[in-house]
């Protein structure tokens, strides 16, 4: 369910994840989720701030991480616009049957950082596309939908612990005027630091 006005606040929804995140869990953020994740506090060695990104590729990047390190939970925080760019990845993910993989869609219905234009999945404030149904059709067995922050907070740990691959849909309120994220440092060096932490 895309929606462009209602929904939980992005920052608070990410803070829920930050509070329950295990020390050996990978969190991959991109676009708006990366911007706000960085603002929430000190980076974790297993944070992959996907900035700069190839828009749409976060789920695939996280899949590779999960395949390489099956003992580490990989949590991908993707936007709905990003997801629409790479719907085939939903099938790739379920085909690989990665149990240590959680894909969270933060759905605000718009391309937020380019000025809030509605995605093709949204018309005005109306949702045209059922994202969880797409995930179900692509083969996801574990699907969770949250429109309320308290419900998300109450269930988040159990959701992450569910055997994956898991698809989570969060209804998020867009942030008018929000800007794009800035890379927190040279990308090659960050990639090397992350690889070192992954393989430690």
């Amino acid at each position: 369910m895309s929606q462009s006005q209602a929904g939980m606040p992005l920052v608070e929804s990410l803070n829920v994840l930050r509070e329950i995140r295990g020390d050996d869990e990978v969190v991959l953020t991109v676009m708006g989720t990366a911007r706000e994740w960085m603002a929430l506090g000190e980076p974790h060695p297993l944070d992959w701030i996907y900035v700069p990104s190839s828009m749409g590729q976060a789920p695939s990047l996280g899949l590779g991480m999960a395949l390489a390190q099956p003992d580490k939970q990989v949590i991908v925080c993707n936007g709905d616009g990003c997801m629409l760019m790479n719907l085939g990845s939903l099938v790739t993910i379920t085909n690989q049957a990665v149990s240590n993989y959680t894909l969270i869609i933060f759905d605000n219905g718009v391309y937020e950082i380019t000025g809030g234009q509605p995605t093709p999945a949204t018309s005005g404030t109306a949702a045209l596309v059922d994202h969880p149904a797409l995930a179900r059709a692509a083969g996801f067995q574990q699907i969770f939908v949250f429109e309320d922050l308290d419900a998300w907070r109450e269930s988040a740990r159990d959701v992450i612990d569910a055997p994956g691959p898991t698809f989570v849909h969060l209804a998020i309120a867009p942030i008018p005027g929000a800007v794009g994220p800035r890379s927190p440092g040279p990308a090659p060096a960050r990639a090397q630091d992350f690889a070192d932490a992954m393989q430690a």
Binding site: S54, L63, G64, A68, N86, V91, Q199
Partner: peptide, 23 residues
């Protein structure tokens, strides 16, 4: 391990994740 993807752009991203994961 054989990893079939649905579109070639995915292949580079999956490979990138595998690489930083030590594969």
């Amino acid at each position: 391990e054989y990893v079939g993807v649905c579109r070639e752009g995915e292949a580079w991203a999956v490979a990138a994740g595998l690489h930083v994961g030590g594969a």
